[in-house]
Design a protein around this nucleic acid. Structure first.
Lengths: 215, 215
DNA sequence: CATTCAATGTATGAGCCTCTCACATCACTC
DNA sequence: GAGTGATGTGAGAGGCTCATACATTGAATG
């Protein structure tokens, strides 16, 4: 446990796993996911290059652990954002904006979270996403015309998530200029887009899905 | 592929650059961007590990060249999709669907195209995106209420792009199950979401871009 | 033709990384 | 206070990126 508080004067570290995750976040923040290396994380934690492998199966496992930490913090941010809003419509839309804003602030975290393949390979990350969906599902139901099934509610949330994630991708690519500077403006756009999506899904006799949504 | 037609019986390859790009696409298709290595591309092209560096400055440059090739093919796909549609509204929405469909088919290409940092580091990739925007700008103008400036039109396109790209990210993450199987259903959802976005931007007195949430 | 040269491929190697395996050290229990 | 499992170390195999010096060749030039 970290509770022992011994940084690194002893042979054993105390809480190497957590320290490595922290180091990982810092490194990724500086040099990106591709520049990250387990060896560097070990170096910063003043531990031999092999030590991390006692706690994480491989490089990706360490990155996934860091991503999980990020998603925890993200969840807290969103819960806070949601709490300040009254109507379910705005609650849904607000999250899109706060997602974009968070991306600009915690750049590194999103790089990890969205690293290609990581999510696909680590179920616990997908699980974290699902919890996030649960957070908003009630609002989605409240907003939809009565009689719509859970499928439609989930589809609406997916659409919101897709919109926000897409904006984040563009933002972090530098599509709009310096991410830090334009973040607020893009967050507003995401907010507006999210409102349009919610409105679109609320049309009582929404357009025939054309193709039934997957499961 | 070799322009001169000599595959590899001679000392010189004939068209190593193109062959490397092709090999890159195949490798990424099999093992993802992270699994890709310049060495492997050289191996498949029956060339020494150092040869690729005669044509590409570094690993990322080769990936960027492959990404450019992908974006060329993508553009062709979209031009075709657009051509089959009459109204500007549907033209805009259609592209979102075709983007998702293309992602499922050319999985590897999208992995490269969306590799974190690549776009940010290689201007020619951003240039390709801009050309793509130009393709749709006329439709965006046609759709918006008169009096809206170019900014709004670009904002609408950005929103559509964000939505489509987000869906693609979720799809390729396996969020909806096997990408190949659910692709069509997700494409339909993207289509529907895109229609909602277009409709949202067409409200004559829509909120000002930087607008306050008031409602 | 013979020669030269610029482009293209090769050989070699330094330096870094991932991950493994045998071994050292320590916290805990009985 | 001895045993034991968890945690860290050392050494190293194998792979990768990229730089540098060298080999080969098609084409231009005289």
């Amino acid at each position: 446990m970290a509770a022992t508080g011994r940084g690194r004067d002893t042979y054993h570290h105390g809480d190497l796993a957590a320290a490595l995750v922290q180091a990982t976040l810092e490194i990724v923040n500086e040099v990106g996911v591709r520049g990250f290396s387990v060896a560097e994380a070990a170096r910063r934690t003043r531990v031999s290059p092999a030590a991390p492998y006692r706690h994480f199966a491989d490089r990706d496992a360490l990155l996934a652990a860091a991503a999980l930490e990020v998603s925890r913090r993200l969840r807290a941010i969103h819960e806070e954002a949601i709490a300040t809003v009254d109507t379910p419509q705005e609650r849904l839309a607000t999250v899109a904006g706060s997602y974009v804003r968070a991306a600009a602030r915690y750049r590194s975290g999103f790089d990890i979270l969205n690293a290609p393949g990581l999510r696909a390979a680590h179920p616990e990350l997908r699980e974290a996403t699902r919890e996030f969906v649960d957070l908003l599902l009630p609002s989605a139901f409240e907003v939809l015309p009565p009689g719509r099934g859970a499928e439609t509610a989930v589809a609406l949330l997916d659409a919101l998530y897709a919109l926000a994630r897409g904006y984040v991708a563009l933002l972090l690519d530098g599509r709009f200029g310096d991410p830090g500077e334009v973040a607020e403006a893009i967050a507003q756009r995401a907010l507006r887009g999210a409102r349009a999506l919610v409105a679109g899904y609320c049309i009582p006799d929404g357009p025939p899905p054309g193709g039934h949504p997957g499961r």
